[in-house]
């Protein structure tokens, strides 16, 4: 009985030690690193960084082919967190410091097709079918994904000033 227990414990310890040694010797775990970077990104999958989504951007960051300040939805906070995680690179001028765009729907032209609602990665557009839609300015990241899908071209991007005056008809 005691030999059996001892043997199993010894076997488990031996296998554990061998695995730990193998883990230390193999090349670094890129997958886990990409996951860690990906977790810091806002997951809007908007593509404003120039990559098809957040995970590809995380991979590019790990390879060093992308800068940490390419994510407008994440803004300053994300860039700072990425800089901290990746260490070496100092954050340059950050995206949130540049004027972030906000999408504006011209409500008199909107036909209520809901296409822009479907593509909005941050659910910043509200409205229902055949009713006019509108953008929640505080949530809009200015990713422009809604602009090409609008069949009546009634969405435009405003940069800088508060979106409210633009919405009031002149």
């Amino acid at each position: 009985m005691a030999t059996g227990v001892g043997l199993l414990i010894a076997l488990a310890l031996l296998i554990g030690a061998l695995l730990a040694r193998a883990a230390a010797r193999l090349p670094t775990d890129d997958e886990a690193e990409v996951e860690r970077i990906n977790a810091l990104l806002p997951q809007t999958q908007c593509g404003q960084c120039g990559y098809p989504g957040c995970r590809p951007y995380a991979q590019a960051l790990l390879l060093g082919t992308a800068e940490i300040d390419q994510c407008p939805p994440g803004g300053t906070a994300t860039a700072r967190a990425l800089g901290e995680l990746l260490g070496k690179r100092k954050p340059g001028p950050l995206p949130a410091d540049a004027p972030a765009g906000v999408a504006i729907i011209d409500e008199s032209s909107c036909i209520g097709c809901t296409r822009c609602i479907e593509v909005c990665p941050v659910d910043a557009i509200i409205g229902a079918a055949t009713f006019s839609h509108t953008v929640i300015a505080a949530d809009c990241t200015g990713c422009e994904l809604c602009i090409p899908v609008c069949p009546v071209d009634c969405i435009r991007l405003e940069t800088g000033s508060s979106p409210l005056p633009a919405r009031v008809p002149a």
Binding site: L19, A22, A23, L26, P27, D29
Partner: peptide, 15 residues
């Protein structure tokens, strides 16, 4: 233990 080792190798070398 062996499977864990195989997984480790595949994960690190062929993500």
């Amino acid at each position: 233990g062996t499977v864990q080792l195989a997984e480790l190798v595949i994960r690190r070398r062929h993500a």
